[in-house]
Design a binder for these strands. Structure first.
Length: 859
DNA sequence: CACTGGAGCGC
DNA sequence: ACGCCTGGAGGCGCTCCAGTG
């Protein structure tokens, strides 16, 4: 070191391992001048945190482990894995326990040296591939902090320095950071709770309720470019404009005055402006070296701009400001909501639908296949949303050919990419089990096969058949032991040192880590443990679930090694195939197939050779679509819920004069639906549609005779529902079991071997639903509200179009008020009918009957 | 069944 | 004024699992 005097020290895990190791060996072997590791003459060797204590000051410390974690997303960050994914190099690993043996022979020693050299080169290449030095240098130049700190990826400190310089330049006095004692006092002796993540301090981004399902028409992805930075600019959010010092706890500050430009928005604006400039340079640059360096510049500018918000919410930051962070997220939620509303306000045929959205994006189902048309819709929505903003910009980010939307933050799509006039599809999977490292490869393979089948564009039946075949075949291979051991590996990360876990005995990866420690291996927080679940070794001959899961987890190397040398002691390790099928394959597979009507968890389980009756509820319980009692109150407030009420449950009425009714004929039905659903053309709801009717297209609710007749119709129509309810028949909720019974002493299915639960075939809530439907037919107040809402929506949409588009839509229909078309006295009669149904509901008391409460005594 | 800690995603 | 010691560095939202009482 003294001779070379390097500027940079480089290693994988340098910060947490090599420096400490070097110092330790120096002191153990008594090497003099330890401080030559750095460039300052120091007398005392630091006892802990040598990097922070400046043991190597004067040199840059580049740790590829730290940098890779910040710069790229990987499953694990071992040198081996990074070499594989980033450099396509297969790195040879040496078990540290083999080291002493290798050191004893010259061949072994040579092997070790060779290995160490190769590792050095790999690390070196990795550093260049990730462009660690140029990028951190850019960040440092931007923010004015120390380069070595950028290499430690301390984002909060970077932001701190950027703001310090900026405020200093503008002659502001900046806040002193809190001392440790002050922090303690502020927190009011809140216990340290070192474990995992704290509870959220304020609310964050909005996630729209996904309309789950499988979409086969084009879906648009629209999102705000750099939402939080542009919000800061748009609303002039700054330490000087947000009155954060006047607020109570958990109060969201009012929007600041937008007419001045304050420090923070100008800093952000500056960053974004520079980035745009660099990007435009990049566009025309042909020299590949300059291109990479420009690309790094723009990436650094983006990183800094994007991390500003995060640091406002970071308690230990000098510029910590919870109210500002809370205001930014609140405005973000508002922006997302307005984007959604404006998108739905458009008038397309078929109407577009916002099916999902997360924080800064909305996904719009167009219902069409025409790419050009869909793109046009996207740009129109974009225009409408962006209209009022100065800085914020909604962009059409992608178009999906089809989409499987399972839950919040969990979906798979085929992205449409146009290259040289040709359309290519690219799979994108977000949040599903198969992108998570805590599922074994076997499980992910299955997931991928399923997605391939479902998103292939082939008919559903074929796809489902393929899936069933695949699972059946998989089961066969599993029982025949034809699957490689590697496919069973599950990986989990340690968030703290293995010994620090309070519930160590329930966590497989912690158990394995503890075992590794016992065997003299080096394991600590941040590492990822690969393990396999085996059959209980303590001699259990039958069920493998005798022992807890954690106790049956074994490190991969143990299982792998036993296949090489077959010592009888280690042959005890049998992979628990049954557990893998029931816990690693079936649940993710069942979740993927949830929106697919052509199959069911029971059928999937059967393919895997399992008793289907045991797995009817493998899909998360929340997936239940039953309307439970608690939701009734909520449902009542939603007048639109009857717009697609099943045809067979709708009330058929005849016109007194022409006997027109619309039960069978498609067109007629549609008309009648319009009549009774008080839809957009509300004025027609009480009129006969028969052009030649002698009623003269007047009203169906014309006089008291009509009232009596309609009441009677309702009574007659309702009777079968009531009877069905009182029959109290129960059926098994397992789709494979067809048991029906009137037994009510137990909720368990009486059929032998079936694990299902009995549920009412016609529940009290279904009955309530039916009554609510009748009611909705005659609720003029609700109808009026809805039509008014629709009217304002259309008017606004019209205005927007008028402004944004010179040739505005012609003949835009504004909905009428339902009361406008009512003949004299009809309003009164509607009220009578409404009250009639209301009475029916109350007198019969069906609106809150709960079967399980009713029969609770008998359980 | 409700609840918790832990993990690992999405944005 | 100086020596000595310690400890950790972006946010929240959302499943999903295993275990507990």
């Amino acid at each position: 070191l003294q001779a070379i005097d390097p500027d940079v020290l480089l290693a994988h895990n340098l910060h947490r391992f090599h420096i400490e190791l070097l110092l330790q060996r120096i002191s153990a072997t008594g090497v003099k001048h330890w401080s030559r590791i750095g460039r300052l003459r120091k007398t005392k060797m630091p006892t802990s945190h040598p990097v922070d204590r400046g043991a190597a000051c004067g040199r840059l410390l580049c740790d590829t482990w730290v940098s890779a974690k910040e710069l790229v997303h990987e499953k694990t960050y071992t040198l081996t894995e990074l070499a594989r994914t980033r450099l396509s190099i297969t790195r040879q690993e040496i078990d540290p326990r083999q080291t002493p043996a290798k050191m004893r022979t010259s061949l072994g020693l040579l092997e070790m040296i060779d290995n160490a050299c190769k590792d050095s080169w790999i690390t070196f290449e990795l550093m260049f591939t990730l462009a660690i030095l140029p990028l951190t240098r850019q960040l440092t130049e931007l923010c004015g902090n120390l380069w070595i700190r950028s290499l430690q990826s301390r984002r909060a400190e970077r932001n701190e320095y950027l703001l310090l310089h900026e405020f200093h330049k503008k002659k502001f006095i900046v806040p002193e950071p809190y001392t440790k004692r002050e922090k303690m006092r502020l927190k009011g002796s809140t216990e340290s709770s070192s474990s995992s993540r704290k509870k959220a301090q304020y609310s964050g981004g909005l996630v729209l309720e996904p309309k789950k399902g499988f979409y086969e028409k084009l879906v648009l992805l629209l999102d705000y470019a750099s939402l939080y930075p542009s919000l800061i600019q748009e609303y002039n959010i700054c330490f000087t404009t947000v009155k954060h010092w006047e607020l109570g706890e958990d109060e969201i500050p009012p929007e600041p005055n937008r007419n001045t430009e304050s420090v923070l928005p100008s800093v952000i604006g500056h960053l974004l402006k520079r980035r745009r400039a660099v990007k435009s340079l990049l566009k025309d640059e042909r020299n590949p070296d300059l291109r990479t360096s420009l690309d790094i510049r723009q990436k650094a500018l983006k990183l800094v701009a994007n991390s500003m918000y995060g640091c406002l919410g970071f308690e230990n930051s000098r510029f910590y400001c919870k109210p500002m962070a809370a205001l930014i997220t609140a405005l973000g939620r508002k922006s997302l909501t307005t984007a959604k509303e404006k998108a739905e306000m458009t008038l397309y045929d078929p109407p577009v639908e916002v099916i999902y959205g997360d924080t800064d994006s909305i996904m719009v189902h167009t219902g069409i296949d025409d790419l050009a048309k869909a793109r046009k819709i996207g740009h129109e929505i974009r225009k409408i949303v962006n209209k009022p903003f100065r800085f914020m910009e909604l962009e059409l980010d992608a178009i999906y050919k089809d989409m499987l939307l399972l839950r919040k933050k969990k979906y798979a799509t085929n992205v449409v990419i146009e290259r040289d006039g040709k359309v290519i599809l690219e799979r994108e999977v977000k949040g599903l089990d198969l992108v998570r490292r805590d599922w074994c490869t076997l499980s992910k393979d299955a997931g991928n096969v399923l997605l391939d089948a479902l998103l292939s564009g082939q008919p559903r039946e074929e796809a489902v058949a393929k899936i069933h075949d695949y699972l059946t075949d998989l089961k066969k291979k599993l029982t025949a032991n034809e699957i490689a051991t590697g496919k069973f590996i599950i990986t989990k990360g340690l968030t703290k040192d293995p010994k620090a876990y309070t519930d160590a005995k329930t966590q497989p990866h912690v158990q394995v880590a503890l075992q590794m420690l016992k065997e003299g291996l080096f394991v600590r927080s941040g590492e990822h443990i690969p393990y396999i679940i085996v059959i209980n070794r303590s001699g259990g001959t039958e069920a493998s679930s005798d022992t807890s899961l954690a106790a049956r987890a074994v490190h991969v190397s143990k299982v792998l090694r036993q296949s090489e040398k077959t010592t009888p002691k280690e042959k005890f390790l049998h992979i628990d195939i049954e557990w893998y099928i029931t816990h690693q394959i079936l649940p993710p597979v069942a979740r993927l197939c949830e929106p697919i009507a052509e199959t069911s968890p029971g059928q999937l389980a059967e393919c895997l050779g399992l008793d289907p009756s045991k797995f009817h509820r493998t899909v998360a319980a929340t997936a239940s679509e039953d309307i439970d009692e608690a939701n009734i109150e909520l449902d009542r407030k939603d007048p639109e819920r009857f717009s697609d009420y099943p045809r067979e449950d709708r009330l058929p009425l005849r016109c007194r004069h022409c006997q027109l009714r619309g039960e069978n004929d498609e067109n007629e039905t549609r008309k009648w639906k319009d009549i009774f659903n008080l839809e957009v053309d509300g004025a027609y709801m009480v009129r006969c549609h028969n052009q030649n009717c002698r009623c003269g297209n007047i009203d169906l609710v014309g006089d008291n005779d009509d009232i009596a007749r309609i009441m009677n119709s309702i009574r007659v129509h309702f009777r079968p529902y009531l009877q069905r309810f009182y029959r109290r028949e129960l059926q098994c909720d397992d789709p494979m079991c067809h048991t029906r019974t009137r037994a009510h002493w137990s909720t368990k299915c009486p059929t032998l071997g079936c694990q299902g639960n009995l549920v009412p075939m016609y529940s009290s809530s279904a009955l309530y639903q039916q009554l609510s439907y009748y009611k909705s037919l005659f609720n003029l107040d609700e109808a009026e509200k809805r039509l008014n809402l629709e009217r304002t929506k259309r008017e606004e949409a019209y205005q927007i179009r008028l402004k944004s588009d010179s040739k505005a839509m012609k003949g835009i229909d504004l909905p009428l008020n339902p009361r406008d078309g009512l003949p004299k006295g009809s309003e009164k009669r509607f009220e009578l009918l409404y009250n009639f149904v209301d009475d029916l509901m109350h007198t019969s008391g069906h609106h809150f009957v709960n079967l399980s409460n009713l029969f609770a005594f008998s359980q």
